[in-house]
Design a protein around this nucleic acid. Structure first.
Lengths: 197, 197
DNA sequence: CCGCCGGTATGACATTCGTCATCCCGGCCG
DNA sequence: CGGCCGGGATGACGAATGTCATACCGGCGG
């Protein structure tokens, strides 16, 4: 019996995945959590063989959780097949990476394969991740781009990061250049779609 | 036996919902589709009692599908509890509106209740929808905001909508005013979060 | 029939952005 | 030890953006 823990913030989705895996005779869902920061305690309590992690969760992101988890196989299950996400997931040592628009049958298969010691990654995604490459953005450029999301002005960003307006402009300019965008909004959009933020 | 059709573009989620409802003795999932524009044909073919519609799907959005569907009860199942979505859904005559972070048990309950002729809407969401109010944006203002998403310049927007740059600036200015934002990016963000786009 | 609203357009104006050059500092690598 | 890179800052300049007043047209409600 493969013991599985599921972490996803959307009740309906989490319940759905549990129901899906519950249909498999050799898989048992031993716990479900809705927040990233509850995963570690639950893993300690239930000792699952495999942990399914959504990336976007309150508390801690799935990627952050994956970095902290040891002694258990991790499969990232996410809506967004962003190259940067895959890269960070692999850096964090996950055993599998499945996107939510993959065929439903693939989930159970992935769980079995990582249990058997294999690494499960969508080949198409892997190619894209290699093609797009790693993030060229520095830490601060990321910070500034994140702060710029939602339409904050240079002054707003400067205040929220305790920087001078001029410095913020420099970082934005640099990030715009690196993303090949023509303004901050496009830069944010590009960086986000690549999983760089 | 309540016959249900599920429309959601993410295989894993759709499969999950199907598995979840499959556990109920009085509910039968008779069809699944992944695109909005496949729903009508599938409804004609399978004659379900209830149709579960995700909003964000390729082809047609769940809201557009709901407007076109007659003779069947519709439940919107969406990630985003945006007031504007709920409003448009109710205008389209749906019988239920469930957000994906609702408890899993609520889905089957919602299906049963709409079958019994009830209308199922999250009370909190209903309050927010009434509080926030309907969209103050005109059609063109929406168009321009949508086109502005992703960081397009005034010139880009003008080209894509066959307008003068000055006119685009006017619409943007007006939309920025109506959303209480301080620039176009914030306006897009606000309008989107309210479901006005 | 007149007025208002939405769509479209023009021109002028102040403000914000994006770019560039240049500077300082502290690590880290060769 | 001497670069080089990343973080941080300043000032200047041109381009893009946001605001406002004004105008014309077509439809719809009073």
């Amino acid at each position: 019996m493969i013991r599985v823990l599921i972490a996803d913030d959307q009740d309906l989705v989490r319940g759905g995945l549990a129901a899906l895996l519950g249909l498999e005779p050799d898989i048992e869902v031993v716990a479900e959590v809705a927040r990233g920061d509850e995963v570690l305690a639950s893993v300690a309590a239930h000792r699952p063989d495999v942990v399914l992690l959504d990336i976007e969760m309150p508390g801690l992101s799935g990627l952050e959780v994956a970095e902290r988890l040891t002694g258990v196989r991790v499969v990232i299950v996410t809506t967004f097949g962003r190259p940067g996400y895959l890269r960070r997931a692999l850096d964090a040592g996950v055993a599998g990476f499945v996107v939510k628009d993959a065929p439903a049958a693939e989930l159970a298969a992935a769980v079995r394969r990582v249990t058997a010691g294999e690494r499960v990654v969508d080949p198409k995604l892997a190619v894209t991740a290699l093609t797009v490459g790693a993030s060229p953005l520095t830490t601060r450029e990321c910070d500034v781009l994140r702060a710029a999301d939602g339409g904050a002005s240079v002054a707003d960003i400067a205040r929220s990061l305790f920087l001078t307006e001029g410095t913020v402009r420099n970082y934005l300019s640099s990030a715009i250049g690196k993303t090949g965008a023509r303004n901050r909004a496009a830069a944010v959009s590009t960086a986000r779609s690549r999983g760089w933020l």
